[in-house]
Design a protein around this nucleic acid. Sequence first.
DNA 1: CTAGTGCACTGGTCGGACCAGTAGGCTGCA
DNA 2: TGCAGCCTACTGGTCCGACCAGTGCACTAG
Lengths: 250, 250
Amino acid sequence: MSGPRFEPVRTVRAYERVVEQIEEAVGSGALTPGQRLPSERELMVQFSVSRSTVREALRVLQARGLVRSRPGDPGGAEVLPFTPAALHKSLATLARVDQLSLGELVGFRMTLDAAANLMAARLRTEEQLAEMESAIGAMRAAAQRGYDAFSAADVAFHDAVARASGNKLIQICQDVVRSIVLGLVSDRIAGEADRAALMARSIRHHEEVLAAVRAGDGPLAARLSRQTMYDYYVAYVPAAERAALRSLLD
Amino acid sequence: MSGPRFEPVRTVRAYERVVEQIEEAVGSGALTPGQRLPSERELMVQFSVSRSTVREALRVLQARGLVRSRPGDPGGAEVLPFTPAALHKSLATLARVDQLSLGELVGFRMTLDAAANLMAARLRTEEQLAEMESAIGAMRAAAQRGYDAFSAADVAFHDAVARASGNKLIQICQDVVRSIVLGLVSDRIAGEADRAALMARSIRHHEEVLAAVRAGDGPLAARLSRQTMYDYYVAYVPAAERAALRSLLD
DNA sequence: CTAGTGCACTGGTCGGACCAGTAGGCTGCA
DNA sequence: TGCAGCCTACTGGTCCGACCAGTGCACTAG
């Protein structure tokens, strides 16, 4: 027979307990964004730990994007609204340390963007269509002014589609991965010889995507958006990885 | 005319400088997983800061999953291989604080899983097919033993597909979001009245997906996988959100 | 040669101290 | 009476020194 099953005692650091409690308070809504934590000196009394411990806990919470500290600010650390900053940091680390290839990143974007278009084609409002329209207008205007402005307008379009999809998770992941991809290829695109042709083609493709979204044809919008992104980035993806990307196309 | 453009001076904390330097060393490959950082007392000499500052920096790095500290360990903090733990934490926080709905999470999974199947159908090796096959076998065997074992086998199948897709980013995000979804619904599925029927149907669906992957029919595998996941979770998704999920189906 | 012990080192925590910066009340001048 | 300026009471950022509990390793006694 087996006696009582003892669990291994996990020694838990004091600062972790502090992190847990504050995280719980934020997660449960007891602390809402904008509210202030007590000062560090007050927290050390409430938690019965030293200030070093409180500060280590606050550093962890800050790294997770939950709070922000400012010196000389009466009222202590501020509880922040969620931002994908921590998510971005994690993914950026993943991309760098774990050697995520450009092909994988682009494949991911193709997938998410297609899904966003698929959903947006059914769920979009007239207002959101107007946003996409104006984003394309901005792309046209920016094509004369250089790559940076063009890229910003392009981002605005994709973000409008993502918002129209109604799926915040897609929107946020899309945003994070996009910024990483742009960081990897923007130099090379900016140095592209016939950048004008690239931008002109991209605008035409975006117009087709928008037309499909407007028509409510989700599958078409998804297919076009995948193709658009493929065409836009394929030149920068190593040949060995292109097969994987092509398998995402219809 | 414009004079020299001064940038606003960003006061940067001492511990942030320490974080940056160590992060850079890890990111650039100067420090590889398994290697050890100098001890805290050694670091405070090298960085010319106090031990408190070193420790706050290490806490941040630890929160990002880059290093791990263990008391009494000669050689200091250990550089860790990347794990999606930090990513998971960020997403879990997002789901909790930012009120990600189950519908959004499931929609995201449907999207990623479909993409994984699409790519896996073309890129899978015989070995990976065998893994999927054995995972389904485990699902069949586990159906008798209860929901937990069944769920584990189900996870193994989806993970095998994700690996076969060759896209680590899809695999990791899939893993993270899946664990969050399971955390939300496992209780309700475990209490399902005709759980046996649910599992039997799920096994049949998975077999169909595998057949499509084996046949190399990516679009079919993607469509079936979306439908499988939709059927599996739709009962737990609020009616108002189901329309968005249905827009992902063909 | 091995089992056991002790030391040197690790990170974890504590307490106190000082600094630079901010906010807001207070004071003095107009 | 009104306002500009100072002054104080905070804040977080950093440093220092100290102690504890745990670990690994070398040394020692059997």
